[in-house]
C-alpha cells in the first residue's frame, strides 16, 4: 500500500509491474487515470496549477486506502497524485488496485477515486484566456461519494 504526491509524471506500466511484483495470487488489476482536459465549464484551459496541503494530503489519502482495504477484498492499492503546473493531456492522478477477482478491484478503485475527489486536500486553479480561476467543486462528486455511504451491499 502506498500513496505518493509528486510534481513529476508517472509511468503506469512501471507502477503496475511494481504493484503486482512477486504476488502470483493477483488475478485482477484495475486502474483509474485522471488527465487534464483542454476545456472546463465552457472555457479553454491553457494550463492548470494543482495545490495541496502538505502533511494533511498524505494522511487523507492513507485513510482512504485503509478504508478501501477494510471494505473490499483486495490485495493492494496505490495512489499517485501530481501537484504543480500541468497542461492539457497531462496525467494528474493514478489509482491502481490489485485483487484476486475483478469485482472487488473495480469497486475499490472507484471507491478510492470517489473519496479522493471529496476528502483529499487538492485544489485546481485554471489559466484560461480570460484569466486565472479556482475550479468549483462539483455536486456530482458529492453524489458519487454519497452512494458509498448508503450502499450496504458491499
Amino acid at each position: 500500500m502506498a500513496v505518493r504526491v509528486q510534481t513529476t509524471d508517472f509511468d503506469v506500466a512501471q507502477e503496475i509491474a511494481a504493484l503486482r511484483e512477486s504476488n502470483p495470487r493477483v488475478g485482477a488489476v484495475v486502474t483509474f487515470i485522471g488527465t487534464v482536459r483542454d476545456v472546463n465549464a465552457d472555457a479553454q484551459v491553457l494550463q492548470m496549477t494543482l495545490e495541496h496541503y502538505p502533511g494533511m494530503t498524505e494522511k487523507a489519502l492513507d485513510a482512504i486506502v485503509v478504508q478501501a482495504r477494510q471494505r473490499f477484498d483486495i490485495y493492494d492499492a496505490l495512489v499517485i497524485h501530481r501537484v504543480g503546473e500541468l497542461r492539457p493531456t497531462d496525467q494528474i492522478v493514478l489509482v491502481a488496485v490489485t485483487g484476486a477477482h475483478r469485482g472487488a478491484a473495480f469497486d475499490a478503485c472507484r471507491f478510492i477515486i470517489d473519496y479522493l475527489k471529496t476528502e483529499a486536500p487538492f485544489w485546481k486553479k485554471e489559466q484560461t484566456p480570460e484569466g486565472a480561476r479556482w475550479v468549483d467543486a462539483r455536486t456530482t462528486d458529492d453524489e458519487a461519494v454519497a452512494r458509498w455511504k448508503t450502499d450496504t451491499t458491499t
Binding site: L50, I92, A120, W123, K124
Partner: peptide, 10 residues
Amino acid sequence: VALLPPVTGG
C-alpha cells in the same frame, strides 16, 4: 487550524 475551500483534486 487549517481553513479549506471545497476540494477539487483527482
